[in-house]
């Protein structure tokens, strides 16, 4: 396959970036998208040029490191697929592919396609956990969990924190990420003591970090590689409004 790539190049957080054009003549349809970028980078290194920086780790679709906006699509055209699991057979010979980083004020560009997603860590720190005493683990069957709650909690727990929801949201909102964590912990018995404060604190942090507000457009769910349901946002709203009415607080 012969491809024309237009890639966002930005040398540093302060530098002014621009789309740079590259051509690749020898792309195999069986290559993953990241392998295709590896081929480009090898070529750039041989030409004594700066290779394109991008995040990646497991390349198995489970770590949440990779992610780029491909032709206006977070993680590319294939549904329920991370960039590393996307293969070049979904593109045609002669295609021009635009590759851009996640765009959000809370995700500043570090270099090229690498963005700083520490904002997600801040959201997690403000409530994405349960408080338990460490020591020997309790017997797993001691606290029964009904199947529907267990399944819904597990669906939400599949969130890998890649940030595609923020990248695709017309409001630059991290609502689906926050909602996945709140749903995951809020549906399980162990998450109940902190349920109300978790929802308001995580949302407050999200708002404070300059993420936008949710308008229920649904773009987040469309691009989510794990297919986190939009209904998890309803769960977050439910917990936040409940906590707002009762005045739940953590101090």
């Amino acid at each position: 396959m012969k491809l024309t790539l237009r890639i966002w190049r930005q040398a540093s957080p302060e530098a002014k970036g621009k789309m740079q054009k590259y051509t690749l003549d020898d792309v195999e349809p069986d290559m993953s998208f990241l392998e295709m970028l590896d081929v480009l980078n090898e070529k750039l290194v041989l030409d004594d040029k700066d290779p394109v920086s991008f995040d990646h780790d497991c390349r198995e679709g489970i770590c949440g490191s990779c992610g780029m906006v491909i032709n206006g699509n977070a993680h590319g055209p294939q549904k329920f697929t991370t960039t590393c699991q996307l293969h070049m057979r979904h593109f045609n010979d002669g295609d021009t592919i635009d590759i851009e980083p996640w765009r959000a004020k809370a995700f500043p560009v570090v270099k090229d396609l690498v963005v700083d997603r520490s904002a997600f860590d801040e959201i997690i720190k403000s409530g994405g956990y349960i408080s338990v005493n460490t020591g020997s683990a309790p017997e797993a069957h001691a606290i029964p969990v009904d199947k529907v709650s267990a399944d819904d909690a597990f669906d939400a727990a599949t969130c890998i924190g890649c940030g595609a929801c923020v990248a695709a949201c017309p409001n630059g909102s991290s609502m689906l990420f926050t909602a996945a964590k709140v749903t995951h912990l809020g549906l399980l018995p162990q998450g109940q003591p902190e349920r109300a404060t978790r929802a308001i604190n995580m949302l407050a942090t999200q708002d404070e970090l300059d993420f936008g507000g949710c308008t229920n457009v649904g773009a987040c769910h469309e691009v989510c590689p794990k297919g986190i349901p939009l209904a998890s946002i309803a769960q977050l709203n439910h917990d936040v409004l409940g906590a707002t009415l009762t005045g739940a607080r953590s101090d």
Binding site: V69, N71, G72, P170
Partner: peptide, 9 residues
């Protein structure tokens, strides 16, 4: 974005 978002709702 430079490339218009494909999924805008």
């Amino acid at each position: 974005y430079q490339h218009r978002q494909r999924w805008e709702g």
